[in-house]
Design a protein around this nucleic acid. Structure first.
Length: 659
DNA sequence: TACATACAC
DNA sequence: TATGGTGTATGTA
């Protein structure tokens, strides 16, 4: 409603812009687009076979599995405030994920809402992943219930597998569904599996089939008809007619259920491989999955949605098939095109992917280069066909909480403190991550969202450090709109800009000192820094430009920008935070850290010009400069005898910040 | 770097 | 009866 208006406003603005543009300009846009198109066209690559698998209504399916009374009624998983997912019955009423519970109830009065149990879903997810890994050890999960796999290598190996390795028991609730684990010749670690069992998947008889003589009953094996087209049928439907039921009623020693004499043999082709994978997920979890098979991730992902639930779809590996498939695909199905983009694009008559082509001149004009290229590549059906290796840790960590309108500053501060401490704990348990950028997020009662961030010169994960920054940002915000009360419905704290083993990140270190600090203390602080560096196992050479951090005491607020001139060169700096003797961040309102990123000279005095006060300060020439040749940055501090010469004394004589 | 948006799950 | 939490990417300034 209100959102719609904003989108509309943006669209009309864009339309006006478009109307004002000359035809010649649009023609130029068309030419550019065509040029890009022909270069993109070169990029087709059908050498890999990518599979995207997606569990059907995952959370809801798990809950239905574990509580059969939920199986035939509309239900959803989540809270009254927000649903995570709904089962297919509830979907018929329009009940969807990301829908608040009270709206869902309006749509479906009988809706049963089951609370989320992430621990359980994680456990199930581990079991699923153990299956997926056997088809691609480098499988990359997108979430608990979704993953990409590159089947290329498996398909090669698969041709060498004997029938037995491609044979699995039929699914039956009341019979043994165990299978030998290593039959595909892929060593699978069973640790994850065994820990998952008992945890969250107690209902699955026994998933921990380490190996076993639970071999295949070959006489009763059904051969799948070789699949020629995309499969929409549930795998059970493929089981062949009636066969004599075996008289083998021996029990499985692991799950204590009778062996199922009925077996399914899966073929060596791609589609059977994927059907087999889905079947094995079903055997192990009693849950169904859908899958897409295509030449790249983009297509595979779109395809997995095609025959959902409990189906799969393969897009043939030819340019024609791909283009034909994309032609009529609604843009909304494209990953990355959400509600807003859909509306926006629709306003310019772009509804299906071929419209990306049809209106390429207009789109070229309207969108950024990156977005435009994405649109065209989507139109062509191009996408990554190597799975990214997920090797970098998280790029940010955050904690946020929604509550009922709150405006009391003390309460807000308390909350901010709690969030900061929580975040700190998260960071510590996440490989002791340390970050430099703290972001405060607030959502007003009006649903307006604001983020305010501030970067520190050094990384931290200390709760109080984080709070100091977050609270500073919060205070600024509260002051900033003091006319109104600043009523919030959400507050969040995020840390980003994590320190990596990159030399870049370790370029700068802080040296600080006060004149009240005896020199031994100063030295111990230097030692501390030194020790820190050693512990970070740095062995970078000194190719970086010399850097320096100086400390100055002031009452300027954080965020004040200053210009420092170093040998005639201006370097813009920003007041960011204050350290005490131990190097810990303590105060936020007084003090100043100045970073000089380049051009440090270790002999000349530095002159400092504060842009806000126009005052000029000069570092006395008796300053002592230390060079840390091994690590790159220049360490700089002044000898103890600063005295009256200290140019910064005028800023705050009480805590005279000497070097 | 700071901020707003959009998006996915 | 009143709309979540976590994380990523991108555009823009």
């Amino acid at each position: 409603m209100k959102k719609d208006k904003e989108i509309l406003k943006k669209v009309t603005a864009l339309k006006e812009e478009l109307a004002a543009v000359s035809e010649a300009h649009l023609e130029a846009c068309m030419n550019k687009a065509n040029a890009l198109l022909s270069s993109l066209y070169q990029q087709y690559d059908f050498t890999r076979t990518i599979v995207h698998m997606d569990m059907d209504a995952f959370y809801a399916a798990v809950e239905m599995r574990d509580n059969p009374s939920l199986a035939n009624i509309p239900m959803a998983v989540g809270g009254e405030d927000m649903l995570s997912t709904s089962n297919y019955i509830a979907r018929r009423y329009g009940v969807r994920a990301a829908m608040p519970g009270f709206i869902a109830r309006k749509l479906c009065a009988d809706l049963v809402i089951v609370p989320t149990d992430m621990a359980k879903y994680s456990a199930v997810s581990r079991v699923i992943r153990s299956v997926l890994s056997q088809y691609d050890p480098n499988m990359t999960p997108l979430s608990l219930d979704e993953a990409y796999m590159d089947f290329t290598d498996h398909l090669v190996k698969r041709r060498e597998l004997d029938d037995q390795s491609r044979t699995f028991p039929e699914f039956s609730e009341t019979m043994c569904r165990c299978e030998p684990e290593e039959r595909l010749g892929v060593v699978s670690s069973t640790e994850g599996i065994s820990s998952a069992v008992g945890d969250g998947v107690a209902d699955v008889p026994n998933l921990n089939e380490d190996n076993l003589q639970n071999s295949v009953a070959t006489d009763d094996t059904r051969i799948l008809p070789s699949a020629t087209n995309s499969d929409t049928e549930p795998s059970e439907a493929r089981i062949m007619k009636d066969t004599t039921v075996s008289t083998d009623t021996s029990q499985c020693p692991r799950c204590n259920m009778p062996h199922n004499p009925k077996r399914i043999l899966f073929d060596v082709g791609v589609e059977d491989a994927v059907r087999e994978m889905r079947h094995r997920i079903h055997l192990k979890t009693r849950l169904t999955a859908s899958a897409g098979i295509a030449a790249n991730c983009l297509l595979a992902k779109i395809c997995s949605d095609q025959n959902k639930p409990n189906g799969q779809y393969m897009l043939p590996f030819t340019v024609d098939a791909v283009q034909d498939f994309m032609k009529d695909l609604p843009v909304r199905k494209v990953p990355g095109v959400g509600k807003v983009s859909e509306r926006q694009l629709a306003a310019f008559d772009v509804k299906v992917c071929s419209d990306f082509y049809k209106h390429r001149d207009v789109l070229y004009f309207l969108y950024s280069g990156g977005m435009f290229e994405y649109f065209l590549s989507v139109y062509l059906g191009l996408g990554a066909n190597r799975l990214s290796k997920n090797e970098d840790g998280p790029k940010s960590k955050s904690v946020e909480r929604t509550f009922r309108g709150m405006s009391d500053p003390d309460q807000l501060r308390t909350l901010c403190h709690e969030l900061s401490l929580e975040l700190a704990e998260d960071l510590k348990s996440a490989k002791n991550l340390q970050g430099k950028t703290v972001t405060l997020k607030i959502k007003l009662v009006t649903f307006e969202v604001k983020t305010r961030s501030q970067s520190l010169p050094t990384a931290t994960n200390d709760g109080e450090d984080i709070y100091n920054v977050a609270n500073q940002l919060l205070t600024t915000e509260m002051k900033n709109c003091s006319s109104k009360p600043l009523k919030l419905r959400l507050m969040g704290v995020r840390m980003s800009n994590f320190t990596t083993s990159d030399s870049k990140q370790q370029k700068l270190k802080v040296i600080r000192d006060t004149n009240s600090t005896p020199s031994d203390k100063r030295i111990s602080f230097l030692d501390k820094i030194e020790a820190e560096r050693k512990s970070e196992k740095v062995n970078q050479s000194c190719n970086e430009p010399l850097g320096l951090l100086a400390y100055m005491s002031t009452d300027k607020p954080i965020g004040t920008t200053s210009n420092i001139s170093n040998a005639g060169r201006n370097v813009s700096t920003k007041l960011s935070s204050v350290w005490d003797e131990s190097g810990d961040v303590t105060t936020r309102k007084t003090g100043k850290i100045i970073e000089l990123l380049e051009g440090a000279s270790n002999t000349d005095p530095w002159s400092l010009a504060d842009s806000t006060s126009s005052s000029v300060a000069t570092i006395p020439s008796d300053s002592t400069v230390k060079t840390a040749t091994k690590y790159g940055p220049l360490d700089f501090y002044r000898s103890s005898k600063s005295g009256a010469l200290d140019p910064w004394a005028k800023d705050d004589s009480s805590s005279l910040g000497g070097f």
